[in-house]
Design a protein around this nucleic acid. Structure first.
Lengths: 90, 90
DNA sequence: TTGACAGGCAAGTCCTTACTTGCCTATAGT
DNA sequence: ACTATAGGCAAGTAAGGACTTGCCTGTCAA
């Protein structure tokens, strides 16, 4: 299991999570085009693919393969560990 | 304002936040000794000092100077942005 | 005033990591 | 079968970040 904090440290990876929040179950190519369009991300396909590997390693993204398509789903459950670790003030 | 996510990406900095959760308002030297004792952190004074700068830059730590002592206080309010950014599942 | 103590500053080293480049595999359509 | 599409693998590059090293400033006690 990868480091959730390290996974969140990258700006592009956070944009990926934003995109999946907006529209869950996207393929790699869908993510690439939508990220360049709406989130001003200029990363290549390979870069996004590697980011998705990191996110999946951290448990923040799950995948389902169907033919030549691979769909990516958001899983925010690992984020609860952050909230529970330190007392949140107000 | 620094990046809260980047600040949390480091293991030693998270240990510092743990320490301040346990005992708020510590000086740099207090933190160094307690971190090596209880959190198995082997970083030098300068390393811890630089980590504290990052945490302060991210708004997770505030400081108060008194004579030759500088006290460090935990502020977890920036963590709320993480929780609010993505919907937490269960 | 002298020395010890708490902390700060800045340059250099080294390792991690984000990204590119090039090529490969597999599935689907015509 | 041939081609286009979706994705994967792996080595190389370059930038960022953690840490060290050495020295300096400021505060307090004797």
């Amino acid at each position: 299991m990868g480091d959730v904090f390290k996974a969140l440290a990258d700006l592009t990876r956070r944009a990926i999570l934003d995109e999946l929040t907006e529209r869950d179950g996207q393929t790699l190519f869908e993510l690439c085009t939508r990220l360049t369009m709406k989130h001003e991300v200029t990363s290549s396909r390979q870069a996004i693919s590697q980011h998705l590997d990191v996110l999946e390693g951290a448990g923040l993204v799950t995948t389902r393969r169907d033919g030549r398509y691979k769909f990516h789903f958001l899983d925010t459950r690992p984020l609860r560990a952050i909230v529970q670790r330190w007392p949140i003030q107000h």
